[in-house]
Design a protein around this nucleic acid. Structure first.
Lengths: 201, 201
DNA sequence: GTCTATATTAGGATAGAC
DNA sequence: GTCTATCCTAATATAGAC
């Protein structure tokens, strides 16, 4: 056996925390080693370089972030139920992983091509979704809206509050950290209601 | 005269570009010097440290980003007109400065306290806005909605598409860069329509 | 597999001449 | 005010013992 699984797992976990919090440029190999309870040399024994390690981590983050995106939508029969289920599930996921949106958007702006390639490699395909929306328009269920605009609206309303969490807490909620929890819980219902009212015929 | 104004201006401009593109951790003093056509020593002659220079730049970015936020809203008499004017003006501003949202959100996640302090120091106060929304609810103009949720919705729909620009272009618009321009132009009308339909009684 | 010690480079900052 | 040359530390990475 070449690698001790628990050591390599521990490293991955520590690396995830460090990269997620500090970003690629801010992350330190020393900090990852410390968190994992090992030293830098061993880090390089398990993973060739900072860059290689980062690639694994950001890929994991994106694949965690994405599949949830299409699931509920594709399963459900009723359009509005599907939309509602998706928003609930997605905001729930983000409440569990509140740092992922900031992590991914930071790296999008640091290195757009790299991240775009990972998005493409993830196999994400929005075509079924755009068709579902187009069908809902044709069936007279919802107003005439470009599927791309609607998709961006749904993602924006769900994801952006996490990207800007410190500002929302500090400015909008007067620094009340418990209020943020409540705010995001309420938001599941609120975003669903908001979007459905905005598009329903 | 202690400083040559055109040199110090040139440095600020170069620093803005570098920090905006790479972020604090990714930015290089050498790159700023190169862009400004000077050398690192002179950079430190004009601005004490990377940190001090960054502080000026991010402050400038935030103050550019914020005042637009409250203006239209406070001026207008009619609630819906005010909302619409704001969204048009704000997305227009972001089309002119498409990198600012990514810049600010990156630094929010890199160093929340620092950015939050700058937001607070900017004198931004959302109270007039929340009161205006509360009044619109009480007057029966719009559905019962928490002002905080509505504010976050408006900002999310306007700002997030710029934060995720490379992904929208690459995934949603099939890499068509001209389509992005068109997409954001359309979006002014689309976001206004979407929000007003979502809240109007 | 894991460690200590060290090589190497990058990058912010300063000294000192002009 | 502007430059060249240099310092110094931090950070990635590797060599080699155990």
């Amino acid at each position: 056996m070449k690698y001790k699984k628990d050591t390599s797992e521990k490293i991955l976990q520590s690396a995830f925390e460090e990269f997620e919090e500090k970003g690629y440029n801010g992350a330190r190999m020393q900090a990852i080693a410390d968190k994992a309870g090992i030293n830098k040399a061993l880090l390089h024994y398990y993973y060739k370089s900072k860059d290689a390690l980062f690639q694994l981590i950001i890929q994991k983050a994106i694949n965690l972030f994405l599949p949830n995106l299409a699931k509920s939508f594709n399963e459900s029969i009723d359009f509005f139920t599907g939309l509602e289920d998706f928003i609930y599930a997605y905001i729930d996921f983000l409440i569990q992983h509140p740092r992922i949106p900031g992590f991914i958007t930071r790296e999008i702006n640091n290195n757009p091509e790299r991240i775009l390639n990972l998005f493409k490699a993830s196999g994400l395909d929005i075509k079924p979704l755009t068709q579902k929306i187009r069908k809902a328009v044709n069936d007279g269920l919802i107003d005439d809206i470009s599927p791309e605009q609607l998709i961006v609206n749904v993602i924006s309303l769900s994801v952006f509050p996490f990207v800007s969490k410190p500002i929302i807490t500090g400015i909008v909620l007067n620094n009340d950290k418990e209020a943020y929890q409540q705010f995001m819980e309420t938001r599941k219902k609120e975003v669903s209601r908001f979007i459905i009212k905005a598009i329903k015929k």
